[in-house]
Every structure is written in C-alpha cells, then in structure tokens.
Design a protein around this nucleic acid. Structure first.
Length: 717
DNA sequence: CGTGGGCGGATTTTT
DNA sequence: TCCGCCCACG
C-alpha cells in the first residue's frame, strides 16, 4: 500500500503520532501545530493501513463545527462517505445512544432535550412552587449547582450536606428538579452525558457490546473534558479499547464549567501503556508572536511542558498601545484595520478579541461610525430566539403532551385568555396528582369558570387537532401549519415595527429549515422528533451575512481554534483581564493566563495588544492599571506604539515621563478649527494627557463632538 | 391581560 | 449603562 499521501504532508512528530502503534495515545498538540490534521490522518491510517473497520471507530469533539469539519476531512481523505464511522459531539453521540436505548436508560421514547434556558426556567418554576425565596435561592445558581453535580457524575443520593443547610437545600432542589424532569420526559444537556454513562455502567451487556464495537475512540480537545465525559471514555474503552486523545493543557480555558485539566494526567495513570507525542512545531504564527506566547505561558505551574517553535520568520514585534479610554482604544483599532485594508488586506482576516462581551460595544460604535462592516460572534443563535422556541414548543407539545415546559410556554401564546389564575389551578392539580400539566388541564376543566374553561379547552383541542391534521404531512408542512394555526405568525404580524417583521421572517425561515432538514439519517425516529432534537443540539449560527468581508469580533473563549492574520487583543487591564473574579484564586488566575495564551496564539502575522487607562463599564468610569500579562511578556518581543502626533498634557499629572510632548500649534480653548469631515467648529474643551489628549469641538453643522487630538487633523483657522 | 416603570445584577459558553 | 425580570396599574 502506498502510504505517501497519508504521511508525506506531515512533519516528523505528526507522522509518529499518526502511525503510532495501536496503544492508548496522548498527543499534546500546541496551538497551530496541526492537531486536526493528526486526528483525521490517524483515522485514515487506522482504516487504510491497520485495516480497522470504520465501523469500530468513534471520534468525539466538543462542538458541532469541529465534528462537521472532522467528518468532511475524513471523507475527503478516505474518498468514501464516513457514514459507518461515528463522528460527533459528546452530546450528539449521547443523544444517538439514548434514542437507541431509551428503554434501558429509563427514558420515555418521546424524551425531549431541554436547552439551558428551558432548564433555568424549569428550576425557577420549581423554586417558586416550593415557596422558596428567589433572592436566597437564585435560579441561576441553583441550576449551576445541579449541572456541576451532573458534570461530576453525581446524583442527589451521592451527595452529603455535611450539616450545611444551604447545601442540604440545594441537594433537595436537585432531587426535586430531577423528579419533575423525569416526569416530563425531558433531559438537560448534562443529563445526556450522565445518562449514557449510567446506561453503560448499569447494563454490562450493552457496555460490552459497544466496547467490542468501538475499539478506537478518538477525542479532540481532551483538556476540555469534564469528569463524566472522562468516566464515559473509561467505560467505552474498558480494558481493551484504544483511546487516541489530543489536547493541550495550555489551552484549557473551561475549568469554570467543569472541564478537568487533570484528566490529562489521569489519562496517563489510567492507561498504563500510554504513549505520548508532542506537537510543537507551529505553522501559524511568526517567531515573535510565539516567543511572546511561550514567555507568558511559562509562568504557569504544573504544565506538561511544551515550547512552540516555527521555522518561519520572526516577523514584526508585538505592538502594545496604551489608550486613553475605551473609545480611543476602539479608534486605534479601526485605524489599524483601515491601514490593513488600504494595503489590500481583507477585513475578515482581522479579529478583535476581548475578555467579556460588554467590551464589544465600544468597538461596534467605532466601526459603525467608520462605516466598517463587522460581525460580532456570540449573539443569540437562531434556534434560541424566542419566536422560534415558541413555534418549537408547539411542536414539542404535539409530540409529547407531558412536556410541561413547552406547555407553559405556549398555553397562552398568543394570548387566549388563559391567565395566571387559571394556570395556578392547573399547576396545583398537577402537583397534587404528580401528573403532567396537560393531563391536569383536562382534569380541571370543569372546576374552572366558564370563560377560562372554554379557553383552556380550546387550547387543548387546538393541540389535538394540529397533531391529528399534520400526521403524515411533510415536516415543513407540519411546521407551516403549526405556526399558522396556533396564531404565532399572526401574533407577530400584528406587532409593530421591524422587530415583528424580523420575527415573522424568522418563523418563515423555520419552515425552510424544516424543508431542508435531512430526514434520511434519522433512523427510526420520526422526522419531527429528529428535527426537534436537532434544533436543541445544534442551535445554529444563523448569521446571514457571514460571508460579507467583515471584521470579526469575539470573546477570547470563542476564538479558540480560530486563526487570523491580524489580531487585536484588547482590554488588557487588571480587573478586566485577568478578570476581577479570578484574581484571588491562583488556579483561576492560571486559567486566565491560558486564555491570554490562546488569544496571543490566534495571530498569524500581526498582533496588537491594547489597554485603556480609563474605561467606562456598567456606567461607571474606572481607572485600571495595565494587565500583569503585559509585564509577563518577554520585553524583546514587544514594542510600544506611539500615536503620530505628540500633544501636550497638563504638567501636573506627568504619567508618561518618557514621552516627548509638544503642544499642537493653535489648538486652544475657543479656537476656531476645521475638520476634514465635520467642517468648522469651536474648541470647547481639551482633556487627557500626552498622546491621549482629546478635544471637544462644537461643529457648526454636526454639533459637539469629542475627537482624539492625535487623529483629528484639525486645522486652526 | 398587557404594558411601563422600578429594581438588581452585569465574566467566560457549548451542548 | 443596559438588560431582563417582577409587579402594579389601567
């Protein structure tokens, strides 16, 4: 067999990992070192060289995007459909297994998946129904607690309060939440994983079957696995399976949601014969960028150890800009991007990265003002929009009458005269009889007033009728019928303004989505059931203009796995990054440092770091000092950027003694000035120091504006 | 039943 | 500052 296409394009370390003996394998893959290549080539190697049947390969990732990428790359390499091979996210695979083995897993066949919002809603309802104080038992925190236990693989019965009354109550809430979820036949995301783990643990025959089948289990981003995912891996590999895991301890940034970096260490202990490979050659960034990143991450303790290197150029130094405030910071970035595009660069190759979403605002405003197309990642995804969830709730209720969350969501949407009082009666009955709201509604009809009773009856009849009438219809016709007859479309059509229009469009898009939904591979699930699960598990990016050439803006977390020729890492201030809430705990501080490392290693050619001396956050101005991460970068990789024009600052606050200042001729209070875009105006105020001086000008036509003196190019008149 | 104003809370996010 | 939630009022 000619192996050249498989190994030729790989470097030494990659080749060794790909062609490694069939033993438990850990690949430590640095940022930009070709991790995905190694994974996909390994699959091809197993199939083509080791004659492993694709049937016995299970490849797991965290995101749908990664799974899709892996699947298509594998298909391309094997030049055959990867269908027999299981490639998917942890949650996707868990879902598939539970659909097949719902009985053994103790689930109703029609079980539905609860997304994060549904889950929190359900917890809140529970807290209310138990008459607990919502201020003391914050739904968000309670949900957090429940998920954290599930991520650890723990059920209420495993938990001990140890005399802590708060904990005791939380455990009770967990148990109550689980009971109500079970009754409704819904499972949340964490439950998907936990159920599969328990499924295997409690059904040795089933576990044995899958162990025999999936001899090869490949895991991507292994540093992000949580406890239950790791237990899951242990279950499925047993003593015979061969795990091949790829990860980077330096890029572990999800500890706060249960990811266990220790799983990397644990893996080496649990699989005695483990072979380890390091991918350290980086194909992404310039030498300087790597040197900066290496220098930073070296400050962390307990690393498995890794040093990225490149055979490429050293490149430009990393540039550091100290902004006066967040607007100055944004303008600086806009200017640099202008420069980039004026030299022929694409906007889509520029990324603005920040620690928290709130920071996007200043950048958006600056982009808007500069008429520069941009795209912010991390907005609401398509299937998470309220109107879409409403429509889906109808469908879910039709599919599963016991789905209380969906019942609550749509029973009075659009309003049909079923108020809180009516619902309370129904809820009380449901609680007393431990039955679904649907059933309770039917049973309480007679106890209700004529008006409420009629309305509620009409609602029940509507669902029944929709269910009956849409049987046998194509999926998209079902969806169409439902949004039509339920009145949701009409409801939003009545809504005034663009918002209503957008919602109607979204709903129409749902019909198209249903039309385009591939019902081929749904197995024995009904197309509707498959579509509903799909909607929850893959909530969809849903950004129409993603192909427009636009500047990319996102948090550092969502930037993981991406790369850009030009990167701005912004808001490098103490308290913001590292974040205040991580500052006191050394472990969390190290995670922040890894986050910074992830940010630095996104950059291919040019990297700018910025911070603001003054920042308005949540309506209050605060003065931060430069992030410690800046100090931790090797000085020789850094260069401070100075604005083109040096301006005077009040002598009594000499903040930057190194800088040479010269007053800008002619710009003083009351001075008439001319601006290229805004026309003529009068200087009202001057403020700020050094390069950050700003000037407040009252323009005759455009009104008063604050400008950065350094960029304004004002002409004295 | 629907809306407007007051209140509190505001890392990070995938599934 | 801004958003989402709750409650009170019309």
């Amino acid at each position: 067999m000619d192996l050249s296409p498989l190994l030729d394009s790989l470097n030494d370390a990659q080749r060794q990992a790909v062609a490694a003996p069939l033993k438990p394998t850990l690949v430590l893959a640095g940022a930009g070192s070709g991790k995905t290549r190694v994974l996909t080539h390994r699959v091809a190697w197993l199939v083509q060289v080791e004659n492993v049947s694709p049937h016995s390969i299970l490849a797991v990732t965290f995101t749908n995007k990664a799974a899709g990428e892996m699947r298509s790359r594998i298909e391309a390499m094997l030049s055959l459909p990867a269908a027999p091979l299981w490639v998917g996210t942890f949650h996707g695979i868990a879902h598939r297994l539970l659909r097949m083995h719902w009985r053994e897993a103790g689930l109703p066949q029609a079980f539905q998946i609860l997304d994060a919002e549904d889950q929190q809603r359900s917890v809140r309802k529970l807290i209310k129904s138990l008459n607990l104080d919502e201020a003391r038992w914050v739904p968000k925190e309670v949900t957090w607690f429940i998920n954290a236990q599930k991520d650890e693989g723990l059920r209420p019965k495993h938990l001990k309060a140890d005399g802590d009354p708060t904990r005791e109550q939380l455990i009770r809430l967990y148990a109550a939440y689980q009971e109500s979820s079970d009754r409704a036949g819904v499972i949340d995301f964490a439950e998907l994983l936990l159920r599969v783990y328990e499924l295997w643990r409690d059904n040795p025959d089933l576990a044995a079957h899958y162990r025999a089948r999936f001899r090869h289990v490949l895991v991507d981003e292994f540093q992000d696995t949580n406890t239950v995912q790791y237990k899951w891996l242990r279950e499925v590999t047993g003593s015979t399976g061969i795990p091949f895991v790829v990860g980077d301890d330096d890029q572990s940034i999800y500890g706060w949601r249960g990811a266990k970096i220790e799983n990397l260490h644990q893996f080496r202990r649990d699989y005695p014969d483990v072979q380890m490979f390091r991918l350290e050659q980086n194909y992404r960034s310039t030498g300087n960028i790597l040197a900066a990143a290496n220098g930073l991450i070296a400050q962390n303790s307990g690393r498995l150890g890794k040093n990225l290197w490149t055979s490429g150029e050293k490149g430009e130094p990393v540039r550091l800009y100290s902004a006066y405030n967040e607007r100055d910071e944004a303008n600086f970035v806009v200017e640099r991007i202008r420069e980039w595009t004026s030299k022929g660069g694409n906007r889509r190759d520029c990324a603005i990265l920040y620690r928290s979403n709130a920071q996007s605002r200043a950048f958006e405003e600056a982009m808007l003002a500069a008429r520069m197309p941009y795209r912010v990642y991390g907005g609401l995804r398509y299937f998470e929009r309220a109107e879409i969830k409403d429509a889906l709730a109808y469908l879910r209720l039709m599919f599963n009458r016991a789905d209380d969350a969906s019942f609550e969501r749509v029973v009075n949407l659009p309003t049909r005269g079923i108020g809180n009082k009516t619902l309370d009666t129904v809820r009380d009955y449901a609680r007393a009889n431990a039955c679904p709201l649907w059933q309770a509604a039917g049973a309480t009809l007679t106890q209700l007033g004529v008006k409420a009773g009629t309305s509620l009856h009409a609602f029940l009849a509507l669902i029944e009728r929709l269910d009956k009438e849409t049987q046998g219809l194509a999926l998209h016709e079902q969806v169409d019928r439902v949004i039509e007859q339920s009145g949701v479309i009409a409801h939003h059509q009545k809504e005034k303004g663009e918002r209503g229009e957008a919602r109607v469009e979204n709903l129409e898009e749902l019909v198209s989505a249903a039309r385009g939904f591939d019902t081929e591979e749904t197995g024995d699930m009904s197309p509707l059931a498959a579509f509903l699960s799909h909607a929850v598990l893959e909530s969809g990016e849903g950004q129409a203009d993603q192909w427009e050439d636009s500047v990319q803006m996102m948090t550092l977390h969502s930037a993981k796995g991406l790369e850009f020729p030009l990167v701005f890492l912004c808001g490098l201030e103490e308290g913001l990054f590292p974040h205040q809430r991580s500052a006191t705990d050394p472990a969390r501080l190290e995670e922040e440092r890894r986050l910074c490392y992830v940010g630095l290693t996104r950059a291919m050619q040019k990297l700018y770091l910025t911070y603001a001396e003054q920042r308005r956050l949540h309506g209050v101005d605060s003065y931060g000092s430069p992030s410690r991460f800046i100090r931790e970068l090797p000085a020789e990789t850094l260069e401070e950027v100075r604005p083109r024009i040096q301006v005077s600052r009040p002598v009594f606050v000499p903040r930057k003694p190194m800088m040479e200042e010269e007053p800008v001729a002619g710009v003083k209070l009351g001075q008439r000035v001319r601006h290229g875009k805004f026309g003529d105006g009068i200087v009202l105020e001057l403020e700020g120091q050094g390069s950050h001086a700003r000037v407040h000008v009252n323009f005759e036509r455009q009104g008063a504006k604050w400008l950065m003196l350094a960029y304004a190019n004002l002409e004295p008149l």
